[in-house]
Amino acid sequence: MCGYHRAVDMISEVIGSVRAGNVGARPVHASGAWGMRYDAFAGSGFHILTRGDAWLITRNEEPVALTAGDVVLSPSGAAHGLSHAPCGFGELPPAVMAVEPPPVEPSDVEFLCGAYRLDRGRAHHYLRAMPDVVAVSPDYDRHPELRSLIGLLGADTAADRPGTRATRSALLDLLLVHVLRLWLEDEGGVTWPALDDPVVSPVLREMHASPEKPWTVQRLSASSGLSRTAFTRRFTAVVGEPPMTYLMNWRLDRGARLLRETSSPLATIARQVGYATEFAFAGAFRREYGVSPGRFRKSV
């Protein structure tokens, strides 16, 4: 149970990181023979099948049958497709993302699509550690709040109204939280090894809670109780990248979120994420995101 609560904390941080992207959601209706391909993108997305049956199509796995209520999650934007019948991924035409008019009569299949698109950067490390595409079959009797959220998102995507950007972002946040929780439950709550490692997990919590501290490998290893070499080896094996690389990415992810969600001056954000000057932060941000912090803030 303790590991599960640590994972829920990580979900909060994952949600915070994807908020640096642009949010989109739309309903899709299909009848007869249909299929569509969603190519890979930087970000996270999901589909909620609200009516009818469908098949989840991926490049390397067998097609997966879906029924109404199932949720498909692409944690780090991997390519996938949906179809009326099993087929090869290459047989599917690309999805057209334009807004559709409401159907005159009920369609055979209806689903909601939602995504956070990161124009710059990449999906959070823990999202990239998940399978490329996962399908979840929620128990709506146990989780009636999820049914309510899906209903709200359906109503929100039916028409654009004042405040749509705020409501859609909040609904996608909540839906992604619930879907990730359900997936963790299905997997037994142990899916991200770093969260259960007795040495690495406490260090990660310190790095996440206080990115502004002048961390070094020496300070981090001292916190872990291991030698510098042993700590670096263990952290890299568990997390997938060296500690200072992870810290830099975490700081820049946090900075991107602050640029999007606040109007704080660049110098303030730089200090909050561990950079001595705004120039140092701006240089690192530009190398990772390919654009200056100011232009990034304007773009979102």
Rank of each mutant, 00 (worst) to 15 (best):
P93R: 11
R165W: 02
L171I: 03
G81L: 07
A85P: 00
R117S: 09
A170L: 13
R59M: 02
V72R: 00
M130A: 05
L73M: 12
V64W: 08
Y126H: 04
L66K: 00
A155C: 12
Y126N: 13
L146V: 14
L112A: 07
G154W: 08
V134T: 14
A65D: 01
G90W: 04
V99R: 14
T157N: 05
P144Y: 09
A159M: 15
R122Q: 13
P103N: 05
G154M: 10
H143W: 11
R122W: 05
E91M: 05
V104S: 15
G151W: 03
M97C: 04
A78N: 08
E91N: 13
L146W: 03
G114V: 08
P94A: 12
G154I: 06
W55E: 03
H143N: 13
P103W: 11
M130T: 05
V136A: 03
T67L: 04
L82G: 00
L73S: 04
E105H: 14
G69N: 10
Y116M: 04
I57W: 06
G151C: 08
M97K: 13
S107Y: 06
V71P: 01
T167P: 00
A65H: 14
T58A: 02
T67A: 09
S76E: 11
G151S: 03
S76F: 13
A158K: 07
L153S: 09
H143P: 00
G121Q: 07
F89L: 14
G151Q: 06
